[in-house]
């Protein structure tokens, strides 16, 4: 077990390292920050000075080694825009992002899981078909389209909610609903198929043959078994709590990590983009490890397998 965990952690570090490296080179090959941040007609000598002060005049691999060296000591560099540490800029935005992604996450579970269970238990009923149609609509529709539809309805037409900004709880509602709807759709579909798969297993019929009432067959045998794959998906959703709101934050001008990312990319604010990608990679990788460990804990068949 310890060896397995060590191997898993090593792989996780490698993944994060690769993400950081990839981002580093792509960003540096895709545009010159100096030209974007300084105005176009800035004198050549001040552009050169800017390049020098940020080390952009060095060969890329020298910049890379310097970056990795600093990163290992916890220094992710400063923003080229306002000179503050990139990590600080990013961390400041995390609460705003969590303020919409965590409620959206709870909404997904609260709607998606029961809907999926109900649909599976009433397969081919009207309710099942309706759930599936909504679910397909929910995850095929791009989130910015859903966001715009919601804005048109609730902000423009009905005037109940503000369309963008972050000036109180009312502003969070549409972003949360937009994020939650798509996730609920995915989760409903997934839960339904997990349930159907379990309900078709011989042990379900055997439990009924034993005389167990259907309610107990569902509660004590079907649900715990369907919970295994469903928990996995929910675990992966935890990994998107930070990174999953880029589009929605942009549409609603919500001041979270996702919006910071969009702005930083547009400005080639290298250190900030890198810090965000590092954070995103780290959360996703940690969520995956957590899911793996959870899997071993909830599924007895995974427990004694020699790793």
């Amino acid at each position: 077990m310890m060896r397995y965990l060590a191997g898993r952690l090593l792989r996780a570090m490698l993944t994060i390292f690769l993400v950081v490296t990839f981002a580093f080179f792509v960003l540096r090959l895709s545009g010159d920050p100096a030209l974007l941040i300084m105005s176009v007609d800035a004198p050549p000598e001040s552009i050169a000075a800017f390049r020098q002060s940020w080390g952009l005049d060095q060969p890329v691999w020298v910049q890379y080694l310097a970056y990795i060296g600093h990163a290992l000591t916890g220094d992710l560099g400063n923003s080229m825009r306002d000179g503050r540490p990139a990590i600080q800029l990013v961390v400041e935005r995390i609460p705003a992002t969590l303020a919409i992604t965590v409620p959206a996450f709870l909404l997904k579970i609260a709607i998606g899981v029961p809907a999926g269970i109900y649909a599976a238990l009433h397969r081919n009923s009207l309710a099942d078909r309706l759930t599936m149609v909504l679910s397909v609509a929910g995850f095929t529709m791009p989130s910015f389209v859903l966001a715009l539809l919601l804005v048109l309805l609730f902000a423009v037409r009905l005037g109940w909610l503000p369309s963008s900004g972050a000036d109180g709880i009312a502003y969070a509602i549409l972003p949360i609903v937009t994020l939650g709807a798509a996730g609920a759709a995915i989760l409903a579909r997934f839960t339904r198929s997990a349930m159907l798969e379990v309900l078709g297993q011989p042990f379900i019929r055997a439990a009924s043959a034993k005389g167990l009432p259907w309610r107990r067959v569902v509660a004590e045998h079907a649900l715990p078994n369907a919970a295994i794959p469903t928990t996995t998906i929910i675990g992966f959703m935890v990994g998107t709590l930070i990174a999953g709101a880029v589009v929605v934050e942009s549409v609603f001008a919500w001041p979270g990590v996702g919006r910071l990312l969009v702005v930083a990319v547009a400005n080639r604010d290298l250190a900030v983009v890198q810090a965000i990608l590092l954070l995103v990679a780290a959360t996703m990788v940690s969520a995956n490890i957590a899911v793996d460990l959870l899997y071993g804990w909830i599924d007895p068949r995974m427990r004694q397998v020699p790793r």
């Binding site: 011989p202 055997a206 439990a207 043959a209 005389g211 009432p213 599924d299 007895p300």
Partner: peptide
């Protein structure tokens, strides 16, 4: 009624199946 069937299943008439390993709940 379902309740009547449930009272017969297992209690009066038990049934076992072809594939014993998947007839038991894995968890």
């Amino acid at each position: 009624a379902v309740a009547e069937l449930e009272a017969v299943r297992g209690a009066c008439i038990a049934m076992i199946f072809q594939d014993p390993s998947s007839s038991l709940d894995p968890v």
